[in-house]
């Protein structure tokens, strides 16, 4: 099917996110508004105004009641999805690069930038999902990253661990209750920052994307690298599709490194790999800038990508996508049925 082109942003996209039901898409960009869209037809149903800096990140709670956003104006804001009302603003000394709700929406983590003498930190805020409730001002936990700043972070299953990806290419596992560092492994190539971290549905494993041109599938419990996907361009984002065992990688040569304008040289394509076999199975073209963010529909119907070109492209998978199986997969399916 033809992709739907969402042109609501004026600048480069920073994150796109589906809600749990897969009917809404939230997108943030370096312009100062968050957009919310219906995923099935691309109609915009609202924007959220208030930030006064580039917005780096957005997340929606599992009940699709609230969204949280982090911005270069050094704030995390909490919004009501339905009305667009800003429910709460937390201020920080530096920009916020990543926010994520835990699996039941009771906690929110934020990754703050290292700048102006401040260390990079991961903060945890308690959230009450009642829109009328007063949200707490206090951070329930602060993790200081004194080795290498965290670039991305997320909650594991049962909100047991906080997993963070770092600028030096390493991945850390923290105890989500105490904030103690349990492990830190150099997983990606040294000094190639981890730029994205997305979870499987049950949050027992996650996929990371790095500038070292690889994406890795890692188990949350012991940070064991299960799979590695090798691309030929620096990556910005990686997502896992549901229903089918694929992963989607987005990236492309950064604008400053591209010397010609021809679209093929930048490799501005979404790449599909088989999650288990680590083999590339296809590419989707369309953006004329690097893909900054990709997200998969949790119901498995499609995916969305946001580019440096300011567009979000929402794709709905065709029948061929669902029909595509490896022989050994078919074999297994037949055996199980």
């Amino acid at each position: 099917m033809r992709p739907i082109l969402l042109s609501g942003h004026e600048r480069a996209l920073t994150q796109v996110k589906y809600n749990r039901d897969g009917d809404l898409i939230f997108s943030t960009a370096k312009d100062q508004q968050i957009c919310a869209w219906y995923s099935h037809n691309g109609e915009r149903f609202g924007t959220y105004h208030g930030h006064v800096g580039a917005i780096w990140t957005v997340d929606v709670d599992p009940t699709s009641t609230m969204i949280a956003s982090g911005s270069a104006d050094n704030t995390i804001r909490l919004w009501e999805v339905k009305t667009g009302k800003c429910l709460k603003t937390w201020e920080f000394p530096t920009a916020v690069k990543r926010v994520e709700f835990n699996e039941d929406g009771s906690k929110l983590l934020g990754v703050t930038e290292k700048r102006m003498g401040h260390m990079g930190t991961i903060v945890v805020l308690d959230i009450d999902l009642d829109v009328n409730a007063e949200q707490s001002d206090e951070k329930s936990l602060t993790i200081v990253c004194d080795e290498s700043k965290a670039t991305v972070a997320g909650w594991s299953y049962l909100s047991k661990y906080i997993i963070a990806g770092h600028e030096d290419g390493s991945i850390s596992q923290y105890d989500a209750k105490t904030g103690d560092l349990l492990y830190n492994f150099p997983i990606h190539e040294l000094n190639n920052p981890v730029v994205d971290l997305q979870w499987s549905q049950d949050r027992t494993y996650f996929i990371t994307a790095s500038k070292d041109k690889t994406a890795k599938l890692i188990s949350a419990k012991d940070l064991e690298v299960k799979k590695t996907y090798v691309a030929d361009t620096p990556l910005n984002s990686a997502a896992m599709t549901y229903k089918k065992d694929f992963v989607i990688l987005g990236g492309g040569q950064a604008a400053m490194d591209v010397t010609t304008t021809s679209a093929r040289q930048g490799k501005f394509e979404a790449r599909f790999y088989h999650k288990i076999f680590e083999e590339e199975i296809g590419r989707v073209r369309g953006h004329f800038g690097p893909l900054n963010t990709v997200a998969a529909d949790p119901t498995g119907k499609g995916y969305a990508s946001g580019g440096e070109d300011g567009y979000v492209r929402v794709h709905h998978f065709d029948k061929g996508f669902f029909d595509f199986t490896y022989e050994v997969e078919r074999e297994r399916a037949n055996r199980l049925s």
Binding site: Y157, D202, Y205, K221, V328
Partner: peptide, 22 residues
């Protein structure tokens, strides 16, 4: 094909263990 079959089995075995633990 043999390699893929093994990968697939390993993956699903790991998933089964993890899901049970969870």
């Amino acid at each position: 094909v043999e390699h893929r079959r093994r990968l697939l089995e390993e993956w699903y075995a790991w998933r089964a263990v993890t899901e049970e633990e969870l």
